[in-house]
Amino acid sequence: MKNNPILRVVTKTLFAPIILYGLYVQFHGDFGPGGGFQAGVIIAAAFILYGMVFSLEELKQLAPPRIVHALMAMGALIYTGVGVASFLLGAEFLNYDVLAKYPAKGQHYGILIVEFGVGLTVASTILGLFMAFAGFDIPKNKKPPKRSPSVKPNASVKKRS
């Protein structure tokens, strides 16, 4: 797909707006439909589109797997961190009231940070899964018992990714 100029130009044009839309869904979730789960998937979709049109290697340069895997844990850590923070400030686990001077303000901060953690985990998990699936290769010494001889897995993976 890399040699198709239409796909290439459209992907490069759409990449930033998709991420912008994902961020809008992420941080506007208090007022409109949306939130961390949806935003995470949308942001991951931008990267997946990039990886499908260009190649898996270029996607790995854009989003190194090591960082993506770290962000998976980071999101869950941010969420739990909010809980621990409210815990340390003298309230129950995940009671956002104490995060700011006024309870309502604290709830706003808490929800925003927690949703950010959810978005981070979802986006990086989906991106990591895509990279693992697209780059999957059965080890040479462990060939599957039955495979149709007409299919060349590596060739088709490369063609698609």
């Binding site: 979730g29 208090d30 007022f31 409109g32 439909p33 939130g35 309870p103 309502a104 709830q107 706003h108 929800i111 949703e115």
Partner: peptide
């Protein structure tokens, strides 16, 4: 209580 319009959130 929360002043957030989206109840789902």
């Amino acid at each position: 209580i929360l002043h957030i319009p989206n109840v789902v959130t």
